[in-house]
């Protein structure tokens, strides 16, 4: 055998994006009944820089791996923060991970909110439920450069008052950074003095210049459709409404095929996409 003739240096793999890096949980916080935030640092010490709206493939070893948006501060690449709602086996293992636990991390992947392109414009951020987690880095980036933006508004809908996320931060964003914060709940209780109803019901309250507004939306798909429609009605161009899409994802890097929405690979072309690009795809059932 003369293998030297047939082989070249091309056979050496340098890096494989399917193999996770191990991170250790350094702190946890139970946000609500079913949602927790994790602080993670890389075992190899290398930073993980990310854009607001990007996600990682987060892995509970032996249980499974799911896409989770980064909920931390983009200015701090030494800490990786995720806010996870416990809905099934993998998210349960992640949301209940304890300090000292190790998790596998691949990424960050995907196209984020691209907040920088909204400089000089009014920004309306609309979140439903856990959808506030992927938007938090966008809010933090805007607050850090607040003077560069016009009117900034956050509309947030939670199911109940107890299920609101980041409750200590919302008043700070309002008081310290001039963000107009409006929160509504689907179902009220004795403690609640604010509005009740869908988040789309808050759209009329927002002050913005339609031709100069960028709208960032994250929540259940029906909520995003109705929210987008409400802003289009108020004169915002479809391309200026950005939504963060959810599809089944097994790789995060455009290879497994699971996240396809017709010609789009949501993991690579998104998850954040201009509404103009997806509107017709979302109104077609089961695409």
């Amino acid at each position: 055998m003369n293998a030297a003739l047939a082989t070249s240096s091309q056979r050496v793999v340098v890096e494989d994006p399917m193999v996770p890096r191990s991170f250790v949980v350094t702190r946890t916080r139970q946000d609500t009944r079913d949602t927790a935030t994790l602080w993670l640092t890389a075992m190899d010490g290398a930073p993980l820089a990310f854009e607001p709206g990007q996600f990682t493939m987060l892995q509970a070893y032996g249980v499974g791996e799911v896409p989770v948006s980064i909920s931390g501060d983009p200015a701090d690449d030494g800490v990786l923060q995720h806010t996870i709602r416990d809905v099934g086996s993998v998210s349960h293992a992640l949301a209940t991970a304890e300090t000292g636990a190790r998790l596998g991390v691949r990424g960050p992947f995907g196209v984020g909110w691209d907040v920088g392109t909204a400089r000089g414009r009014d920004v309306v951020i609309v979140a439903g439920g856990i959808g506030l987690a992927p938007l938090r880095p966008a809010v933090l980036e805007i607050c850090a450069n607040r003077a560069a933006y016009g009117e900034v508004t956050l509309l947030y809908g939670a199911r109940t008052p107890a299920e609101r996320l980041f409750t200590d931060e919302l008043p700070r964003w309002a008081a310290e950074h001039g963000v107009a914060v409006h929160v509504t709940v689907d179902r009220s209780d004795d403690s609640w003095r604010g509005p009740v109803g869908l988040v789309t019901g808050l759209v009329d309250r927002v002050v913005f210049r339609p031709e100069l507004a960028t709208v960032l939306v994250c929540g259940p798909e029906v909520m995003m459709r109705h929210t987008a429609a409400a802003f289009l009605d108020r004169g915002v161009a479809p391309a200026d409404v950005r939504v963060s899409m959810e599809r089944n994802m097994k790789c995060g890097i455009g290879l497994c095929g699971h996240c396809q929405l017709r010609e789009l690979f949501i993991c690579q072309d998104g998850p954040v996409l201009g509404y103009g690009l997806v509107a017709s795809l979302l109104t077609q059932a089961e695409l």
């Binding site: 070249s8 091309q10 056979r11 793999v13 890096e15 994006p17 399917m18 890097i253 455009g254 290879l255």
Partner: peptide
């Protein structure tokens, strides 16, 4: 943007 690393090895040469 991202390649399948094992496919790359098998396909090489």
């Amino acid at each position: 943007r991202f390649a399948d690393a094992s496919y790359a090895v098998r396909r090489a040469d």
